[in-house]
Design a protein around this nucleic acid. Structure first.
Length: 213
DNA sequence: CGCCAGGGCCATA
DNA sequence: TATGGCCATGGC
């Protein structure tokens, strides 16, 4: 199957329109949210963020105990693990003086390596942080992207980075495109390609020419 | 009641 | 290196 990632983007964008991600008030909130949302619905993350927002300053979060933090983020699930992951992230953030603009000056390849070295930050979380907090044009390989491409019959690489680079290679490198693409893929997944897909109204239906189930 | 959500770590083989 | 178990709440 010939793959055309740009056509998928086009179809999703035409159907759903601009998404304007990430849904956060600050870049710091974005980064915390990226950990909270791991394998979790945004609905639950939002509840956690409402609890957390009064404390949502780097110096304050860094001072909270794991137990206090866990209680605040409880609605997001996995709260003990995520509290620990947030604290690990804060340790790294502190080494850059909690300064987003300072981090933006770092070479992106090195920054990605630094993010991946943090306990609890894997490739997908690292990439959404790079994309939505540090304006790095990068394709986020999430479960939905894999599912869509596989179901379209594309022959995709298995490893995360090879998958990511193959998609990036065939797209124009504009930041806004990668920003919207990931958001659109998630938005699409909310309605389609679930256990009981409704694919005759799927915006990708005329690409695959068949039901995506 | 069961399933799963905008993952990642760790133990085992 | 490659699966499998585990983490845990809330919506449906």
């Amino acid at each position: 199957m010939k793959h055309d990632y740009q056509l998928i983007y086009k179809k999703l964008y035409e159907h759903y329109g601009p998404q304007g991600w990430w849904p956060a008030e600050t870049q710091f909130e974005m980064m915390i949210g990226s950990i909270l949302v791991q394998n979790t619905s945004w609905r639950n993350v939002d509840k956690a963020l409402i609890n957390l927002r009064p404390f949502l300053h780097p110096e304050v979060v860094a001072q909270l105990s794991n137990e206090e933090l866990a209680q605040l983020i409880k609605p997001s699930g996995f709260f003990n693990i995520k509290a620990s992951r947030i604290k690990s992230f804060m340790e790294w953030f502190k080494t850059h003086d909690y300064d987003i603009n300072l981090i933006k000056k770092i070479d992106r390849h090195q920054l990605r390596t630094e993010l991946l070295s943090i306990k609890g930050i894997g490739p997908e979380t690292a990439d959404v942080i790079l994309l939505y907090a540090f304006d790095t044009p990068i394709f986020v390989v999430d479960a939905y992207a894999k599912r869509i491409f596989y179901r379209l019959g594309y022959d995709m690489p298995e490893s995360y980075d090879t998958f990511r680079k193959q998609v990036e290679k065939e797209l124009p490198g504009a930041l806004v495109l990668f920003n919207e693409f990931h958001a659109l893929i998630v938005e699409h997944a909310k309605e389609h390609c679930k256990a009981t897909p409704i694919c005759d109204i799927c915006p990708l239906f005329d690409i695959c020419g068949r039901r995506l189930d």
